[in-house]
């Protein structure tokens, strides 16, 4: 039962990544991201309790604190502070994007179809699902034009990796896990500073305008 529940949360994370794609307002996207992190944290906790692995609890807690709270709040803060327009500007229409996301999920299954995978707890689904979250994250970065939505895409991608970690190998070794959290946090802070400086310098954070290097 708990295994099923954990799988459900993983699937939910995939669903939330699609909501990020589908959201046309920035806040909606950030909220979806927070929810995604939350569901992954829930799945982590479940796996940790099934397998009784103590360090996974730490990971779940970090996930909850860093990715479900601090980072979304940080993003909210930056958005408000810089008066970023709330509408998400896309290169591909939202409808098409969702279709693409479906294709990505199919592709991920195709990719691992002949690999004969087995993880310790969760079923066959985890690797393809995490690959699809990763590619969806990349898809967000490719199609969304604002700097802040690109950060959002990157964070989704990162969540996909985390999903794969906890589901396939019950997390990376502890110090690696800590390093990764540190890196992500510092990375987001640095990206935030960049967004801040760019909005000061260019009065905008639309990446379309950052095209001065063309040779």
């Amino acid at each position: 039962m708990e295994v099923k529940l954990a799988e459900f949360f993983i699937a939910l994370a995939v669903f939330f990544s699609i909501t990020i794609v589908a959201s046309n307002r920035l806040f909606l996207g950030i909220k979806s991201y927070a929810l995604q992190s939350l569901s992954i944290a829930a799945a982590t906790t479940l796996i940790a309790s099934i397998e009784n692995i103590s360090h996974l609890f730490v990971s779940a807690l970090l996930m909850l604190i860093v990715k479900a709270c601090i980072i979304p709040l940080l993003l909210f803060y930056v958005t408000k502070k810089l008066n970023i327009q709330r509408k998400i500007e896309t290169n591909v229409t939202i409808f098409d994007s969702v279709i693409f996301c479906a294709l990505i999920v199919v592709f991920s299954y195709f990719l691992v179809a002949k690999f004969n995978l087995s993880s310790r707890v969760l079923g066959f689904n985890v690797i393809p699902l995490s690959i699809s979250v990763i590619i969806i994250g990349l898809f967000i970065m490719v199609t969304r034009r604002k700097a802040i939505t690109q950060i959002l895409g990157f964070l989704t991608l990162e969540n996909g990796i985390f999903m794969a970690e906890i589901a396939s190998t019950h997390g990376m070794p502890v110090f690696v896990e800590l390093g990764i959290f540190m890196d992500v946090l510092i990375g987001v802070i640095i990206a935030g500073i960049f967004v801040y400086r760019m909005s000061e310098t260019f009065n905008d954070i639309d990446t379309e305008k950052l095209t001065s290097f063309k040779e």
């Binding site: 898809f139 199609t143 690109q150 990446t207 095209t211 290097f213 063309k214």
Partner: peptide
């Protein structure tokens, strides 16, 4: 080729990575 590939747009650059990955 250069003007096509080095268009300066970060979305396009990420798109190359995605395509290559796939």
């Amino acid at each position: 080729v250069r003007s096509k590939i080095h268009c300066g747009n970060i979305n396009a650059y990420l798109f190359y990575i995605a395509l290559t990955l796939i």
